[in-house]
């Protein structure tokens, strides 16, 4: 498959995180580059995989600009330090304003996006349609199922209009059918714009690998404190990216084994 990796979209440099004297993250370095495929609006899907408690959520918060690392930097669009608001952020528990109906929540997000000025309503209904949420727009979050909440939360963050969409454990707690649907939706999102970049933080190796073009494995190195990136897997190079029914391929299964060995 033909593709090139060009501009750096996001750069994480020498990130360390301590809580007191306890090191959670150590020397995290990686870059996300714009993947260009001829004749397509191919966005990026990057997964950060690691065991529970390894520090994924902490790294997620740093990437989102919600938490500061003890040292190191996260920069986007040519060396601009990331700050909250630069990225769409879907929290692990699909947080929404409990006192707003889904529609109002989405409207508030859309109003923050200058690109949608005057077209907020259209955009909301378009997304709601795509995400199967139209009939729930008038409801309050407490009336939604986990999967519906998640979709509402994703739409809310997409209306924001940022290139990046960060998702913390988007595959946990969903049943198989809903999971498939979410994977499909995320892939659609990644194809909606050349610069669209999804960063998925997850412990679900299979789903993460199936959906991504690049995977970073977060783990502990023998005798050293804190979690760091132990492995970078370029799924495009292995010809495992952007394929349907990938899960049965041998190369895919081998890759999963390879990742498991690092966790």
């Amino acid at each position: 498959m033909e593709y090139t990796k060009t501009d750096v979209l996001l750069k994480v440099k020498d990130v360390n995180l301590f809580y007191g004297t306890k090191q959670i993250l150590r020397d995290i370095n990686f870059e996300i580059k714009d993947i260009v495929r001829p004749g397509m609006k191919q966005g990026q899907v990057v997964s950060l995989i690691g065991r529970s408690g390894i520090g994924k959520t902490q790294l997620f918060r740093i990437l989102a600009g919600l938490g500061k690392p003890s040292s190191g930097t996260v920069t986007i669009s040519k060396d601009k330090p990331v700050k909250a608001g630069d990225m769409g952020v879907v929290f692990q528990n699909y947080y929404l304003f409990e006192w707003r109906t889904v529609y109002t929540s989405l409207e508030l997000a859309a109003k923050k996006n200058p690109a949608l000025k005057g077209k907020e309503k259209e955009a909301i209904y378009k997304y709601a349609e795509d995400f199967n949420l139209t009939e729930h727009l008038k409801r309050y979050p407490k009336e939604l199922s986990g999967g519906q909440r998640q979709r509402a939360s994703i739409i809310q963050q997409m209306l924001n209009g940022t290139d990046f969409l960060l998702l913390d454990e988007p595959f946990s707690g969903l049943d198989i059918l809903v999971l498939d649907r979410v994977v499909e939706l995320l892939l659609d999102v990644s194809l909606s714009d050349e610069l669209k970049t999804l960063i998925i933080v997850s412990h679900d190796i299979g789903t993460s690998v199936a959906i991504s073009d690049t995977v970073y494995v977060l783990g502990h190195e023998e005798g050293k404190p804190g979690a760091t990136i132990k492995k970078e897997i370029d799924l495009c190079a292995r010809d495992l990216a952007w394929k349907k029914n990938i899960r049965t391929e041998k190369a895919f299964i081998d890759t999963l084994q390879e990742i498991k060995a690092e966790l």
């Binding site: 989102a64 909250a84 608001g85 990225m87 952020v89 947080y95």
Partner: peptide, 12 residues
């Protein structure tokens, strides 16, 4: 904290 953080992510 997440209520405030949600606002931040939305650029409030």
């Amino acid at each position: 904290r997440q209520q405030y953080e949600l606002c931040k992510t939305l650029g409030y």
